Amino acid sequence: MKKILYLIAVSTMLFSACKKQALVENTVYEKIAPGDPKYAYVKILNLTPGSPVLTYYMDDIKFSGNLSSLGVENSGYTYNQVYPDLGYSVTSPGTHKLTAKVIPTATADPNLEVFNTQISPMAGKYYTLFTTGQYTATNKKIASSVLLEDIKPLLDTSKIFVRIANLYNGGPNIDLIKGDVVTTGVKVISNVAYGTASNWVAVPSPGNGVAPSFKVFFNDAATGIPLITAGITITLSKGRAYTLYLRGIAGNPTYPFSGTFYTTFY
């Protein structure tokens, strides 16, 4: 089924004083077909250990965020949280300033700008920005990020596509192994360095059913040793493409290595 994104172009609430006291919503929507070259498409994943809860701004205009019932923003996006959850947010093509501030209701450093970078998304293309580095109470800055163009693979209802995005600070290059036992598993993706992502790969023999489960290992590409000895079991749906992202800080027990995934295309 063709999926449509909706952008609210104008939003006006008209309150009628008629006898029925009807509430009338007069909202104009613009239908945005996937890949419409009028727009660029952006997702943001906070992979900065220690990050406070953030709101993102594009050219000083709020790009993300939530409001409480009192109209004061009290939630946002912290470490290992993605905006938006599914799909992408839209912006105009061209060069933009992307920033992040601590939410105004935070106990520490409310409204402090902690991230500032420039991005230049192109018309009709999709991107994920990963914040990286480490945030501390001393530096109070997210000093680095990685912008990845998301090129949609040719989806197939019999296949599952995956890629690796390696954001594991201080970690090795990574191989992705599929199999119940690491020594006899199939190498699906090879040698992904920190700050880079692999190409899309169809999972070999994913299993029966619409959403099969299977075990994967994230191996040190140089030694062949898995970073998680027992591997992890994941359940993915056919006909979709998933980003498996690696996070944490090598040698840091507070932010250990972890492999997580999100749906990138469906």
Rank of each mutant, 00 (worst) to 15 (best):
P37T: 13
Y56E: 06
A222S: 14
S258N: 10
G185R: 07
P226K: 04
L86F: 15
L176H: 06
G71L: 09
L47E: 00
T157A: 13
K20M: 07
I44H: 00
M1R: 07
K215S: 12
L67W: 06
S237E: 14
I232Q: 15
V203L: 12
Y56G: 02
F115Y: 09
G231K: 03
W200N: 04
N74P: 05
P84E: 08
G248Q: 05
V53Q: 09
A193R: 08
Y56T: 04
S205T: 14
S64T: 15
S145L: 00
Y126W: 07
G35Y: 14
F265P: 00
I8G: 11
G207N: 09
V28R: 10
N111Y: 00
P93A: 09
N191F: 09
D220K: 03
G87N: 08
T184A: 14
A197L: 00
G231L: 05
I142H: 04
A241T: 10
V102A: 01
T184R: 11
R163N: 02
V114K: 03
S190R: 02
A143I: 06
K31D: 14
E113P: 01
S190K: 05
G209C: 10
Y77C: 01
A108L: 15
Q118K: 08
L14R: 12
P52Q: 09
V114Y: 03
K2A: 13
M13Y: 10
I4E: 07
P153I: 06
N208E: 10
A221E: 11
P34E: 12
S158H: 13
L244H: 01
A165P: 01
F63R: 01
Y126T: 04
V186D: 07
Y127D: 12
K3C: 07
C18A: 11
V53E: 13
S190W: 00
E149A: 12
A106S: 15
N199R: 10
L112A: 11
E25T: 03
G71R: 05
V201F: 15
V210D: 11
K19D: 08
I174C: 06
K20Q: 08
R247I: 11
G50E: 03
S11H: 14
F217N: 07
F115I: 01
N166C: 06
P110K: 13
F218S: 00
A17Y: 11
Y39W: 15
T263S: 08
A202L: 00
A123P: 09
G231C: 07
T128A: 00
N169F: 02
Q21I: 11
V10W: 04
I119S: 04
P93N: 09
V203Y: 08
S190N: 07
S205W: 03
T235A: 13
G179W: 11
G94M: 10
P253D: 14
L154V: 15
N80P: 00
S144K: 11
K159V: 02
V201C: 13
L7C: 09
N66A: 11
F115H: 00
K2P: 15
S51E: 02
F257R: 05
F214T: 01
T157L: 13
S144Y: 05
F63P: 00
L154M: 12
A100H: 05
T95P: 01
